[in-house]
């Protein structure tokens, strides 16, 4: 079931360099969103820009009836969003899409997020912990200030995530992929390999992480971004090439098993 909620903004502030958190009062979506799903948002005051913008659900709070999204300022819409005040209303279609589908008996998971890719991965930590899995998270960002999800990951994990920054201002210097390879290697060497890898971030990162996971024989899922018009599966704007033909990123994804993606 999809809802189109007229959602008052409760909070909208910069959390790190060019990365903002927005809290929406959207009870139906908050009650039903699954980890990895997204909302397709109509932003007020930019009617000349006729398309909605898709954002992953960073956190859903069913009791409060709210959801958080984390957005990076990139173009007109995301810049315009920074000027919205609490009390103004967006319209959000959601919860959309196929979220993360970790294997049923998942015992040990590795989550890898690049930049704002941390948003749709964050709710997965709670889901995996609740089913008793051991979770390792790796966050990569350009610089320390852009690691805005670190604290929430630490709270959900009960320990610090592994971090890297491109400029070396926090954690390992450089890309996060060496951390991923090390984690996979160490787990394998310890005799307790990972049984699930989830990755969201820039496509080159996902492709690389998918090949590392596949190399280690671990089932891997990735969350893909495509230009979206309808966001509900009707217009075929957002297709992804898969081994089973063209699939819609909005409703057949955005999460796909990495082995199905034709990169």
């Amino acid at each position: 079931m999809l809802y189109n909620e007229k959602a008052p903004i409760l909070f909208n502030e910069e959390a790190g360099r060019g990365i903002w958190i927005m809290t929406l009062d959207a009870p139906e979506i908050a009650a039903t969103a699954l980890p990895g799903q997204f909302v397709h948002v109509r932003i007020p005051g930019m009617e000349g820009h006729i398309l909605r913008r898709p954002f992953g659900v960073y956190a859903a709070f069913p009791e409060e009836g709210t959801i958080d999204i984390m957005y990076q300022v990139l173009g007109f819409g995301t810049d315009h969003m920074t000027h919205l005040e609490p009390g103004e209303r967006v319209e959000a279609i959601g919860p959309v899409g196929r979220g993360w589908q970790p294997p049923a008996g998942c015992k040990k998971a590795l989550l890898v997020a690049g930049g704002v890719g941390s948003a749709p991965i964050h709710p997965l930590v709670g889901q995996l912990k609740a089913q008793g899995a051991e979770v390792t998270a790796i966050l990569g960002a350009q610089t320390a200030e852009a690691l805005v999800a670190r604290q929430r990951f630490a709270e959900a994990l009960g320990c610090e995530p592994l971090c890297s920054t491109d400029d070396g201002t926090f954690g390992r210097a450089g890309f996060c992929t060496p951390l991923v390879q090390e984690a996979l290697d160490e787990a394998a060497a310890s005799g307790q390999p990972f049984d699930y890898v989830a990755c969201c971030g820039p496509e080159p990162l996902m492709k690389l992480v998918a090949s590392m996971a596949e190399g280690a024989g671990v089932f891997c899922e990735v969350s893909l971004e495509r230009r979206m018009a309808c966001g509900v599966g009707a217009c075929l704007s957002c297709v992804v090439d898969t081994v089973n033909g063209k699939k819609r990123a909005c409703v057949d994804g955005p999460v796909f098993p990495s082995k199905e993606v034709v990169w």
Partner: peptide
């Protein structure tokens, strides 16, 4: 893909 682009008050597909 990309199969769409937003333009001023419209879109291309």
């Amino acid at each position: 893909t990309p199969r769409i682009a937003e333009t001023a008050s419209g879109m291309l597909n």
